[in-house]
Nucleic acid binder design. Structure first.
Lengths: 209, 209
DNA sequence: GATAACTAGACGACTGGTCTAATATAAAAA
DNA sequence: TTTTTATATTAGACCAGTCGTCTAGTTATC
C-alpha cells in the first residue's frame, strides 16, 4: 500500500480508470451513490481530481461506468455458475445462490446487490441510470430463464409456468431476500427463499451443491 | 397555498411537526434519505430551520420519526385490508396487492415502499435505522402470516409450507417486484408476481378482487 | 523537440447539518 | 392590569463538505 506521505507514481491510464471504478464500486455498494462523494473515492484510490475528470465527464458518467463494470463482472460470474454445462442446471442455480449467500455474510451485510441497490436509489430519479439498470435486470432474467428452461426440458422439474416467469419470480424474490438479509443481519431469509423456490415453486428437493 | 412573500403564521406545535414528517416522508420516498436535505423539506413545509431542531434532535432523529409515522400509516392500511374480516383472507391479500399496484402507477414509479427503500439505502450503515426497519418488516410478515394461516385453516389453499415462510416469500417477492416495477417503469412485474404467488405458490386461482 | 496523456489542486458556488442568540407567546405572580 | 417568568418557536450564522471547472505543470510517447 502506498504511503500517503509520498505520492504514488502515475499509473498507466487504463489502470487508473480501472482502479477508480473498482474503488468506487465498493464504496457505492456500501454507502449508496448519493452518499458517496467523488473525493472519498479519489482519496481511497489515490488518484487526483484532475484525473477523475479526464476519464469521466461527470459523477453521473462515473456512476454509469461503475454499473457497466459491475454488470460485466456479474456476467462473468453467471458464466462460471449458470454457464457451467458440466453441472445440471438446477445445481448451477443452487451454487449461484450459495455464492451470493456467502458474499452477503462475508461483507457483514453491508452491500447486497449493487444493481438492486442503485435501482432502488436512482431508478425513480435518473432516466439514464434507470434504463441501464433495466437492461441489466432483463439480461439477468433471460439467463435464469434459459437455465430453468434447460432444467425443465431435461425433466428436472415440471411446471405449467413458463421459465421466463419463473426466472422473474426467482430474481424478484432474491432481491427481496437480500434486502431482508441486510435489514435483519442474517442470511436466513436468503436460505429460506432458496429452499422455498426449489421446494414450493419448482416442486423439487433443493439440489445438492 | 401560502405566498412565499409573506411568512406563514406559526402553526400549533403538533401541526408543524406533523407537517414536517408528512412532507419529509414524501420527498424521502422519492429521492432517498441521503439525497434529501433538510432545507428542501423546510422549504416545502414552510417551516424555519430553527423549528426543525426544536422538534428533532438531528436529521437522523427526523428520519426515524418519518419511518415510525410511515409504519403507523401502514398498520392502518393493513387494518383496513388484511384486517377486513368481512372478506375471505386471500381476497384481502389480493386487495392489498392491487392497492399497492395502483399506488405505484399513480406515483409514476418514483416511490415504491419507503421501508424497502430505506432498508436498501441505510440498513448497512446505520444501526438505529436497521433495527427499526427490521422490526417493521417482522411485524408486517406476522400480519401476512396470520392472514395466510386463516386462509389455510379455512381450506382456501393447501400447502405443506408453514404460513410464516409463505408470508416471508410473499414479502420478499413483493419488495423485488416493486423494485423491478420502478426500474422498468411498468406494473407488469408486480402483477406477474401476484399471479405467480397465488397460482404457483399457493396453488389456487387468483382471487376475485 | 513536439505532442499527447495525465496530474495537482486551487477555486467558486452551493449545499449540508448544527447551534445559539433572539423573539414571540403563554402562563403565573404581584 | 401589569410585570415577570417560562415555554415555544424562529433567524440565520457558522463551518465543513459537495461538485464541477480550470489551467499550469509533469510525464510519456513519437
Amino acid at each position: 500500500m502506498m504511503s500517503t506521505l509520498s505520492r504514488p507514481q502515475a499509473k498507466p491510464g487504463n489502470e487508473t480508470r480501472t482502479e477508480l471504478i473498482r474503488v468506487g464500486s465498493d464504496i457505492i455498494a456500501r454507502r449508496g451513490f448519493n452518499n458517496t462523494g467523488i473525493n472519498v473515492v479519489l482519496k481511497e484510490a489515490g488518484v487526483p481530481k484532475g484525473s477523475f475528470y479526464y476519464y469521466f465527464s461527470s459523477k453521473e458518467d462515473f456512476g454509469l461506468a461503475v454499473i457497466d463494470d459491475f454488470a460485466a463482472a456479474s456476467d462473468a460470474r453467471l458464466d462460471s455458475t449458470l454457464g457451467d454445462s458440466g453441472q445440471p442446471p438446477l445445481v448451477r442455480i443452487r451454487r449461484y445462490l450459495d455464492s451470493a449467500i456467502a458474499d452477503m455474510a462475508a461483507c457483514d451485510f453491508c452491500r447486497g446487490c449493487l444493481i438492486g441497490n442503485l435501482g432502488q436509489e436512482l431508478a425513480g430519479q435518473n432516466e439514464a441510470f434507470r434504463e441501464r439498470l433495466d437492461s441489466i435486470f432483463s439480461a439477468w432474467q433471460r439467463r435464469f430463464a434459459d437455465c430453468l428452461a434447460e432444467a425443465r426440458d431435461r425433466g428436472d422439474f415440471e411446471s405449467p409456468v413458463d421459465p421466463d416467469a419463473l426466472a422473474q419470480l426467482l430474481q424478484m424474490g432474491w432481491q427481496g431476500a437480500t434486502l431482508r438479509a441486510k435489514v435483519s443481519k442474517s442470511v436466513a431469509p436468503m436460505e429460506r427463499f432458496a429452499t422455498l423456490f426449489f421446494e414450493t415453486v419448482l416442486g423439487v428437493p433443493v439440489p445438492a451443491a
